[in-house]
Design a protein around this nucleic acid. Structure first.
Lengths: 315, 315
DNA sequence: CTAGTGTGCGGGCATTTGCCCACTACATGA
DNA sequence: TCATGTAGTGGGCAAATGCCCGCACACTAG
């Protein structure tokens, strides 16, 4: 009746429960479940790895609160969250994921139906993995960005599918190439009725969550194979400072009239929106890009970590 | 500017963050914060002790789901949650606290204003300590039970104050003796306008959370000094099986016409309510009391643990 | 039937953690 | 001024934990 995988998850969940909630040692758990200590240990760490057990900190560190206030003032933001940093070795996406998840949950829990637009990116991906499963089928989730990768696959950019899996909401992925070969090809996709619907929905979103890409050599655009190192150099010399949903902007947060901006298969997040438009991004190399997006009012909300917040504020 | 206590909490929170979210060792945290490892260890455990860090399990164990379904069918309940047991040594209240907290949070997060009535008891107390601080000032919290202890103090029964501290909701404690000396004294209190308001509010509550007291020698009534062992024996021989908010009922869940029921300073939870009326209780000695309350339809919801659920179902 | 592959298990060990204890710094009051 | 108390600190050590490694069992291709 149970698949082996399910009963394994059950066992892992039980071990995690006894360990984290019950405060028992792995030895005691092993005895209780009738397994070896080693298995108990594996179950506990599996419970953690599979995200069965969620840890959340319920205390706003004063230093972070001050940074939030300073950021809100400096860039006139409607929603700011600063997560404590994880120090030198830590992954900044990891640091902000739990915090971003709690902000997203805040919107998901609203009882009035919302249109929630999401972009892509590693930070966003890490964040939705931290969202507690909940039923939020009153909302509509819409993707800002195409889900067809250059090689035809869609797996790497399925942020919205993962999210809707978690919250059972109706979702509208965008069946458009992330980057068309020509502007004409993009125009073709844009004329499709289904694409139009998704575009209009995304543009009228009640709240938008996006990652922010930088233009340094560790840029997502380059790492994910959309640009070569040479192309990145060209972009930089043309003034490119950052990118949101594939649309490249300069140091003032003004979108560039650049060739490839005519081929990206995504909704451009326009500056000066009044609905919450929240960037989820952290890391030293992203600072300039984030500052540009905030300055140009492409974003009116930000979730970041402590060192990034400090860097954003120090001129 | 910071009180020493605040900055200590900040430090503890930061240490807890690095430990639980960042996955660092206490040594690394010690280096990062510039303190000794021992202090880092103390900060981490303080973060846990002060409830700064919350752990919650996001996986329903199949066995518990089955017990929930069986309980809902058997007793026709609108809300059932079964937490995994904590084994022989564990405190059942501890086991159900996290689960109860998440149910209470579900109601607290509702955007429409609710009247939420709460009783008292150890299980309830443990549960509200697990509730994540959130702003829920749209609701009104009302106490079902008086807050004046026999010795005049009020500290031991301040469940509602703790809860409203956490969620910032308007609260209505009941300034009435838990147990008056005479029925006449109680009548006096009942005639007070403020008491009447609280009574009416509590009786019209949209959702009610109560503990369930047993009549065995470890009964809360006896442990807290309201009854002697002899009185308990009398009660039992009169058919008393359990107690909710101080009102004693028999094995069928029918309230007894017992002398001290005329002196308790609390709102009687009437049988057959349609609004969710949820018992939070677990433990082998409470099984008969819980079953009676469910049978008599004093409760139409239950949060308990696995062994208790099993015992309730086995006739 | 057999060798190859791979997945999971328990043994054992280095690292990490929790906690007792003696010590110090500071406050309080005779 | 000095005894006394209290809170916090680090040393040290036993217990708990994480992890590597060799082994066994199952499944597969030849």
């Amino acid at each position: 009746m149970n698949t082996p995988d399910e009963s394994l998850q059950d066992e892992a969940a039980r071990a995690g429960w006894l360990y984290y909630v019950g405060g028992k040692t792995q030895d005691q758990i092993a005895v209780e479940l009738g397994v070896s200590r080693q298995r108990a240990q594996r179950l506990v760490s599996r419970a953690m790895a599979e995200g069965l057990v969620h840890v959340r900190l319920e205390h706003k560190i004063t230093a972070c609160l001050e940074l939030e206030a300073a950021l809100a003032r400096r860039f006139d933001l409607c929603e700011v969250r600063v997560a404590p940093g994880l120090g030198a070795g830590g992954d900044p996406n990891r640091a902000i994921a739990a915090t971003a998840a709690s902000v997203m949950e805040k919107y998901l829990r609203r009882t009035d139906p919302l249109v929630i637009a999401v972009g892509t990116g590693r930070a966003l991906r890490a964040s939705i993995d931290e969202i507690a499963p909940l039923i939020a089928d009153q909302h509509r989730l819409v993707s800002l960005i195409g889900n067809i990768a250059p090689d035809g696959s869609a797996t790497h950019f399925d942020v919205i599918v993962r999210l809707s899996d978690r919250v059972r909401a109706l979702h509208f992925p965008m069946s458009v190439p992330v980057l068309s070969d020509t502007a004409a090809e993009r125009a073709l996709f844009q004329r499709l009725r289904t694409t139009k619907i998704v575009f209009e929905l995304a543009q009228s979103a009640d709240v938008t969550f996006v990652g922010v890409g930088q233009m340094t050599d560790d840029a997502p655009l380059r790492v994910d194979g959309f640009k070569t190192t040479d192309e990145m150099t060209d972009l930089r010399s043309a003034g490119a400072t950052g990118e949101i949903a594939g649309w490249v902007f300069d140091a003032h947060g003004t979108y560039l009239d650049y060739e490839s901006n005519a081929r990206v298969g995504s909704v451009r997040v326009e500056a000066g929106r009044t609905a919450p438009t929240i960037g989820i991004a952290a890391g030293a190399t992203k600072v300039r890009a984030i500052r540009a997006a905030l300055t140009g009012r492409i974003l009116n909300g930000l979730i970041t970590d402590e060192p990034t917040a400090q860097a954003l504020l120090s001129e």
